[in-house]
């Protein structure tokens, strides 16, 4: 029983990070029909930006700020202007393929300019335990979960409770009408790219101390978050959050109770089941598009 509790906590902590990344998937999809297959690499890169800042002599807190700012410029602004905008005109598929190429490009660049070897990365949460319901739970798990929940709460508050959030939703739901009523649609789309970049940088900060900074670490994350977004519902932020947490827990339980070798297969099987029986995702909305 104590084992199950530990597995649930660890699964939720990992799942919370998946959720952050999956939310980014849904945000970009909703506002600009972008499926970003480089999302995993977007999580890997900020850690290296922070490490580069630290190597240049910056203290950890400054490196975090610089890393997040640089990520927002590179993975938000530059990504939108240099890749999404020019490719969007050619349709969703060419853009998706371009993001795959970007993923390879980022990975190889990190390998070339940094190292193919893993590097250690400091944790923002101190090591140690606290007792919850008689169980020792690591501060790191609590910290990861806490920061991720705060980020998600902040985002949902922004989207649902502020004028800016309403404008973003309007731009996502019907850009033409939004434009007519005076919503600066382009600026709203850019904002979602910046928010996505902020979320992946945050995910990077939380996951890298555990997974280590390595050029290839985005592969697993990107895939898990993509599955989480589809399982939860690609067009719903709350779906992506639920999907992330679910996949995190499922992955850990599968590793413990099925087999480590088949752990990667279990979320996949779950994904296939969702696509077959509830294609809009667990919390998603059915959507129709003209083809």
């Amino acid at each position: 029983m104590s084992n199950l509790f530990d597995l649930l906590v660890a699964g939720l902590a990992t799942g919370a990070i998946y959720a952050l990344v999956a939310v980014g998937f849904t945000l970009l999809w909703q506002t600009s029909q972008t499926i970003n297959f480089a999302q995993g690499e977007f999580v890997m890169l900020p850690a290296f930006l922070m490490l580069a800042a630290m190597h240049a002599g910056a203290p950890f807190w400054l490196a975090i700020i610089l890393g997040i700012l640089l990520s927002m410029i590179l993975l938000g602004l530059a990504f939108k202007m240099l890749l999404v905008d020019p490719m969007m005109r050619h349709g969703v598929l060419p853009l998706a393929i371009a993001t795959m190429a970007l993923a390879i490009g980022i990975k190889e660049a990190v390998k070339q300019f940094f190292s193919a070897e893993a590097s250690p990365f400091p944790s923002i949460v101190p090591t140690g335990d606290i007792s919850i319901l008689g169980h020792a739970v690591s501060l790191q798990s609590i910290g990861v979960l806490g920061v991720a929940i705060l980020a998600v709460l902040g985002l949902t508050t922004l989207l649902n409770r502020t004028s800016l959030g309403h404008q973003m939703q309007a731009a996502a739901q019907n850009p033409t009408v939004a434009r007519i009523i005076g919503v600066p649609v382009e600026r709203m789309i850019l904002l979602t790219f910046l928010i996505n970049a902020f979320l992946v940088a945050l995910a990077s900060l939380l996951i890298t101390p555990i997974y280590l900074a390595k050029f290839s670490s985005g592969e697993v994350l990107g895939q898990a978050a993509f599955i989480a977004a589809i399982v939860g519902g690609f067009n719903q932020v709350r779906g992506a959050i639920a999907g992330g947490l679910l996949i995190g827990v499922l992955d850990n339980l599968a590793a413990a109770y099925v087999s480590t070798q088949y752990r990667a297969a279990v979320p996949m099987i779950f994904l296939i089941a969702v696509i077959l029986f509830r294609p809009q995702g667990l919390l998603g909305r059915a959507e129709e598009r003209t083809v």
Binding site: D6, I210, A255, A256
Partner: peptide
């Protein structure tokens, strides 16, 4: 007797089993 995969990133479940 726990087998793990090369390149595995997340060891939470394996360590959970050791703890148990």
């Amino acid at each position: 007797d726990l087998s793990t995969e090369a390149g595995q990133a997340d060891f939470a479940a394996d360590v959970g089993k050791i703890k148990a």
